[in-house]
Design a protein around this nucleic acid. Structure first.
Lengths: 334, 334
DNA sequence: TTGTATGCGTTATCAA
DNA sequence: TTGATAACGCATACAA
């Protein structure tokens, strides 16, 4: 039980070489003869030796650790993004350290401190916003930072965002083309830049098309919020005939309330659209028209950037990706 | 940009003390005077110093890292379990390293090798089964292992399982009490011990009650499998009037097909039950009667065990937790 | 190609 | 309570 891990020293002795030889045998591109290398690997295999990445990180100033900072991992969209990131991280030879944050103050800051303690090569932030000072500290320490869907203007980190405003505009046009007159936007109170961007784009496009939008905001971005928002929007004297929901989860809650509680037919009496394209959006109980988050592309951009030698290109200022509109059954006249 | 992390040495110089003093200031329970400690912490704060956990782990033979080995993170049940584990890990002062596995051969083994390379204090396996030899290696290295929902009999790791067979029996009884005569079980081809346990318990209890069970297995444990299984079961000459689905996702797919494609009323013409109690099971489009995975309890047991000083109690042989039956609307006569 | 010597940032031991 | 010194396991500059 209290037996320790086997070290390079033991392998060296068993293979009858020096420990530097062992080190070289496990370093790609190092200068070792084929025969020595073979003997060392055999000894290592037999002893169950595995390079200590902590010690290696100490020497190389590169740990291979990438911190993933995220709240609400259990949410469909978040977990899909998490999967894409960890998978691509692994393919790139890195390893993911997962840090859960909550809505409390300083939660993200504490996560980044953890990243620093483990000397992570980079951190990818999917929730919340870190304090400027800690961002500066990370940057000074040579750690790379990626912010996903958190609009921010301080230079240094790579910022990956979507064309949220444009999406809002596109779905507004689609609603109008479907003959809808009374537009509504069902948002959460979270007020993150992406959510507000969708709201803004939707509202402005509607105004351009000569329509007003009634906006309600409630709770978080989940199913329950959708139910409550349905309650508030569908009891209005001038009931909306088209609703753009800030997330798919909100849309699901909204649709369930609309159908089962208000007996409203979708899309005949009410058009609905969401955002994220979570798995449930494709389920036949919903068949939700929605915008798809380009998760794979997001993960690619993030990891490519943090693997680069000199990330000081113009890319580091931020990239804006396109979210495709996925036509399903909740908006008339595809 | 190429500026390095700040070390204890720099803090020591700034505070006018030795680096051992700095080390002690950051070690709970070490012997430092209040005044010295204050000065050191002030200097550290100003310089942005954070203890290097890699170096600390090297000395202490304890890294604080716990590896989470899992496939299909993006699945509702898995992501909820993942959240519970990471949260409780963090509360316990540990940090989670997430390793994604797939169905390919040796995937879990490679994950555990990664755990060894980073000298993880423990690994928690939620998917697949590692090879005996690598399990032995982990154990010999002093690494603790937890297997969640993977039945296995080799001693050493803590094994956490549910009372799957008993759940199968309980829902069989409920179906019979609801007046159902033609029982079916919708399983995946994955054939994991937990899935097979549910099938076995269901089947045996039905036999005791004088009924046969028609079993179909297809695909993985997701929504699509449920749709296909509905196709196969609901077109049978002697159509089932009660189906126990191995997972909630299968149940959702099954119900959607039953309702929208076969126009079958649930629960009037068909009773359905699932397993996991994922969030969607509570959505009003499903209101699925199901068994709830005691995720919090699972995480508690796992983390308590791997934090213990001497885990050599009888607990290490394995624990079996109880899954509650959550009554909703898809089984008649609650 | 190989071995020797040195350093990475920390904690533990010991003497003061 | 404090400081000097020796590890921890590894990678690399340098000499052979």
């Amino acid at each position: 039980m209290p037996k320790e891990f086997v070290s390079a020293q033991e392998v060296a002795e068993k293979a009858g070489v020096s420990r530097s030889a062992v080190s070289r045998a496990f370093t790609p591109g190092a200068s070792v003869s084929a025969e020595t290398r073979r003997r060392i690997l055999a000894a290592a295999e037999e002893l169950g030796y595995h390079v200590n990445h902590l010690a290696r990180g100490l020497m190389r100033n590169e740990t291979g650790i990438v911190c993933l900072v995220v709240s609400e991992v259990a949410t469909p969209y978040r977990s899909v993004l998490l999967r894409a990131l960890t998978q691509q991280l692994q393919s790139a030879g890195k390893v993911a350290m997962l840090i859960n944050t909550d809505r409390t103050d300083g939660s993200v800051d504490r996560a980044l401190q953890q990243a620093i303690r483990y000397r992570a090569d980079a951190s990818i932030i999917m929730s919340g916003m870190p304090d400027k000072s800690i961002v500066q500290l990370c940057l000074r320490s040579g750690q790379r930072l990626v912010l996903i869907n958190r609009d921010d203007d301080q230079p240094g980190p790579l910022r990956i965002n979507l064309d949220d405003e444009e999406c809002g505009a596109r779905i507004a046009t689609a609603f109008v083309r479907a003959g809808c007159k009374r537009l509504a936007f069902a948002n959460s109170e979270a007020g993150t830049p992406s959510l507000m961007g969708r709201e803004r784009g939707f509202q402005m496009a509607a105004k351009r098309l000569g329509l007003d939008v009634v906006v309600k905001r409630y709770g978080q971005t989940g199913y329950e919020a959708g139910r409550v928002l349905a309650q508030r929007l569908l009891t209005l004297p001038d009931r909306p005939d088209a609703v753009f929901c800030a997330t798919d989860l909100i849309a699901c809650g909204f649709m369930d309330a609309a159908r089962h509680q208000f007996r409203i037919a979708i899309p005949d009496e009410l058009c609905v659209a969401g955002f994220d394209d979570i798995e449930q959006a494709a389920w036949s109980s919903y068949e939700l028209t929605t915008f798809s988050q380009p998760v794979t592309e997001i993960a690619e951009k993030a990891i490519k950037w943090l693997m680069e030698d000199a990330p000081e290109g113009e890319m580091s200022t931020g990239v804006r990706l396109h979210a495709d509109l996925v036509w399903r059954g909740t908006v008339r006249g595809a």
